[in-house]
Design a protein around this nucleic acid. Structure first.
Lengths: 228, 228
DNA sequence: AAGGTAAATATTGTACACAAAAAAGCATTG
DNA sequence: CAATGCTTTTTTGTGTACAATATTTACCTT
């Protein structure tokens, strides 16, 4: 995608870096993002940092309270459930379109990634499974052949990734996720768009529910670095 | 929504202003957004302008090419079709949820707005109809009772508004739009979520198609201010 | 005269400075 | 000892300067 030869802008690089740290859970919800601290860490001035933060505030990854600094967004269980509800529909749409528009390469890519997921599942490595699982979903988006939809789905996946990651820690979640992927792939390969949409919807909604379970068991401080 | 007592930030005010100018077609696709020109116009410095522009580049309203300035995004017919395809699904989801979760006030608000649309339709004032039509759709989003979905739908509607507006100029589009709204409302009031989703999907897809017709007839220069 | 090259000009990206506002620390008082 | 008000310190928001890069203009060559 990025075929610009122009050297990348500082603020763009920083935005991606900070976004990744939020996605991987290095920056926890509620954590304060100090502009000067970030500036010194990345040995730059506050200007590019601010530009990066302002950009991240748009999709809601961070919250910038006027005159009161930026913090990593704290997503309430309620809102998270809503986000999963929307994600389910977006991915279901990808599946419906994928089933209708699947190319040979799409088929190849998806089956390959699914096989690599099987390996990660067998080796019981949740982190590795997480990464390959993520690739499976990205391949699903690509197969929809709607570039706008691909962008939206990817963006939403990124926003949820910090939470998705946790959710795979739940007992037996990896293996059931793998089985669900098998059903998804089967439906898409058979060309049944409505079936694919249904299966995906359930797959994501289950993730949301498992996450709700997790939230109920784990104490708040595990997720949130600071309270307001 | 905006219940902050803190005085608003310049960059936020500017972002909304520029966004509105894009939505209303005052800034046409391809138009260059000169930082110093904007700064002098709003009698401020380049810093808040830049922050506003960087934020607008995230949802793709404008394109910032490194070292080459910002332009209003030029959305290709292909991409516009894709956006309408996604919008159809998002709004269909709103309708499905609305049918299941409708409150008395939702019902009241939607019927009231629909009635006011009837008036605008009868008086054959496309601009007024456009505004009320917009309100109808916003009320539909609200009725979904999923605040995340409401935000996403609203954001997407804003991104498409410059194009939606044009599309109502097509012959008889206003009256057919009104009839479609009637069907949507009826489906939602009857509580049939799947029916509502179907009707809405068709309503939006028709908009996309009508727009494609428009694009085919009107010459490019009407829409686009400059070609690269 | 056309095309290409080099100087001139304009514009962007980043650093930094300063004012205004919020947070923290401190002292005073009930 | 707690609470409140004042002072100090920190942090944000914006203006401005400057260097690096595009773009335009002018000039020279063929």
């Amino acid at each position: 995608m990025q075929n610009r030869c122009t050297p990348i802008r500082q603020s763009d690089r920083l935005r991606e870096l900070i976004e990744e740290r939020i996605a991987t859970g290095q920056y926890l919800p509620g954590m304060r993002l100090d502009e000067v601290a970030l500036a010194t860490e990345f040995s730059t001035s506050r200007t590019p940092i601010r530009e990066a933060l302002m950009q991240l505030s748009i999709p809601g990854l961070i919250v910038m309270r006027p005159r009161r600094g930026a913090i990593v967004a704290e997503i309430s269980p309620q809102r998270l459930y809503e986000m999963f509800e929307v994600m389910a529909e977006i991915e279901a749409m990808c599946g419906r379109l994928a089933a209708r528009r699947l190319t040979d390469t799409d088929r190849q890519v998806m089956t390959d990634i699914h096989k690599s997921c099987e390996e990660a599942c067998a080796s019981e490595d949740p982190d590795e499974y997480y990464r390959r699982n993520e690739r499976f979903h990205l391949a699903l988006y690509d197969a929809s052949h709607n570039t706008f939809l691909i962008e939206e789905a990817t963006s939403l996946q990124r926003r949820l990734s910090a939470y998705r990651r946790l959710q795979l820690r739940v007992r037996d979640r990896v293996s059931s996720s793998y089985i669900e992927h098998s059903n998804i792939l089967e439906a898409i390969l058979s060309g049944d768009g409505e079936l694919a949409a249904d299966v995906i919807r359930k797959h994501i909604v289950i993730q949301g529910e498992r996450f709700a379970d997790l939230m109920a068991t784990i104490k708040e401080q595990t997720l949130s670095a600071a309270s307001v």
